[in-house]
């Protein structure tokens, strides 16, 4: 792991309206196989990706939110939610499908600086 790069996936888009959230998650799962230092950041509407209780039957689309719960099995445990984005959407940590670390904007910015590769979709 010593020569592993720090990869951060920045998610700023809501699920279902566009495919970005789903295809971003597909990259994250593949990255797990490369033994890199992976973290996921959820900002702006990206926090909606983690909302519990998604029911997609009515839109005839696969509900991919359970896959966030599988991340732990891939040793991806660094999930960060920006507090200001969460608050602005009337959400709290209890609303999320997985345990997350809530960071202030300033903390999130600092974490971004430390990354080698930042991928946003």
């Amino acid at each position: 792991m010593s020569d592993a790069k720090k990869f951060m996936f920045v998610n700023r888009k809501a699920p279902y309206g566009t495919i970005y959230a789903l295809e971003s998650l597909e990259v994250v799962l593949i990255t797990a196989a490369f033994d890199q230092d992976v973290s996921l950041a959820f900002l702006d509407d990206g926090v909606y990706q983690l909302k519990k209780g998604q029911q997609t039957k009515g839109i005839e689309t696969k509900n991919f939110s359970p896959a966030y719960r599988a991340l732990e099995d891939y040793d991806i445990e660094k999930l960060y939610v920006e507090k200001e984005a969460m608050d602005a959407r009337g959400l709290s940590e209890d609303d999320f499908i997985v345990p997350v670390t809530v960071l202030s904007r300033a903390e999130m910015g600092k974490l971004m600086d430390e990354q080698d590769v930042v991928l946003s979709f």
Partner: peptide, 14 residues
Amino acid sequence: TTTLDTCLSTATGG
């Protein structure tokens, strides 16, 4: 969009 706002309020500088 709020993209510029988010960047300005989140990023540390640069």
